[in-house]
Design a protein around this nucleic acid. Structure first.
Length: 325
DNA sequence: AGCCAGGTAATCC
DNA sequence: GGATTACATGGC
């Protein structure tokens, strides 16, 4: 894999237009998210890659005066429609136009939400992934350890994605569905160590090669997505709560099940349907947002992928570039 | 060694 | 329908 250098092409000023508090640090960086190499965060700046149509973009994000400033770097012809697509993608990915007031008002009434709210108020769901990308993430999380998920993600991105450098940072970038469709199940199993997932990933690539995100908008996606082999209730709910940004939905798995059981029932574990019912009772219409706050608060003091010290960026770059040789 | 991981589909009754 | 089981792999 070669290291692709991206040049500065644009600067977008994205005002935060939603009501309520806004927390830039925890909107961009989630303490519970495992390391993918697709993004990097310091306290002052975040860097993230996006695949937008034919374009590979590297974005640095900063925040001042209730405005997100996005410096766009690209590998090729940057056209006006790219600017439009990226603007829409960034606003949606980080919920810059979403209100936090309704959830905050609900959360203030619930004792279990006191500390999470104090620490994280104004955090939005973050999902820079599109439907295909978040489906791949959810697939790699199914019935395995995060350590193995991290390995499989690294294998896929190293073997089939891109490695880019811009604004002093090196990051991985996703493959597109069409690019992944060219990879055989045998390769996914033997080279990328995906196990039985090797048989479902090609179905994901095929589905999203045939269906663009735009034409899926408006469908009942939780139902539609489950027509893809390998997508069940959990993966579909992750897609809905993250990429569709439905604040009422959350995918329940053995990981957040235990976190939520402890936070709302003071129990080590609980029945998934009981948890879902209780979350919906406590936070009508906002159970997904509530789950997000409870889970991120759980990891706040022991992040899975900690913030980067600016002095550590050199070592970060070297580690990623070592996989390029 | 055996069990379990941030599930899903196939196969039972 | 709900309950049961195989599915790959790696870490503890």
């Amino acid at each position: 894999m070669t290291l692709l250098h991206l040049d500065h092409a644009d600067t977008l000023q994205l005002p935060v237009t939603g009501d309520g508090p806004f927390n830039i640090l925890h909107t961009l960086w989630k303490p519970s998210h495992y390391a993918t190499g697709l993004e990097a965060h310091t306290r002052e700046s975040s860097w993230r890659t996006f695949r937008v149509g034919d374009l590979t973009a590297g974005v640095r994000l900063r925040y001042e005066d209730r405005t997100v400033i996005a410096d766009i770097h690209t590998d090729g012809d940057y056209k006006p429609h790219h600017r439009e697509q990226l603007t829409a993608r960034l606003i949606a990915s980080y919920g810059l136009d979403e209100d936090a007031a309704a959830f905050t008002a609900l959360a203030e009434q619930v004792p279990a939400m006191r500390e999470p709210l104090a620490a994280l108020a104004g955090m939005r769901q973050s999902c820079p992934e599109d439907y295909f990308e978040i489906a791949v993430i959810a697939l790699l999380l199914q019935n395995t350890t995060v350590s193995r998920t991290t390995t499989m993600t690294r294998n896929l991105l190293t073997h089939h994605g891109k490695l880019v450098h811009f604004d002093g940072i090196t990051l991985r970038a996703w493959f597109t569905p069409a690019e992944l469709a060219a990879v055989t199940a045998a390769t996914l199993k033997e080279k990328d160590r995906l196990g039985y997932r090797a048989n479902s990933l090609p179905a994901f690539a095929a589905f999203f090669t045939d269906h663009t995100s735009d034409e899926l908008a408006g469908e009942d996606l939780v139902e539609v997505f489950q027509e893809i082999k390998g997508v069940g209730p959990y993966t579909a709910a992750v897609m809905a709560s993250h990429a569709s940004r439905d604040p009422s939905v959350f995918g329940i798995d053995v990981w957040n099940r235990k976190i939520l059981a402890r936070r709302i029932f003071d129990a080590a574990d609980a029945d998934p349907t009981a948890i879902t019912r209780r979350m919906n009772d406590l936070f009508p219409g906002h159970a997904g947002t509530a789950a997000l706050y409870l889970v991120e608060h759980e990891y706040l003091n022991a992040p899975v992928a900690p913030l980067l010290d600016p002095a550590g960026i050199g070592a970060w770059n070297q580690a990623l570039e070592a996989t390029a040789a």
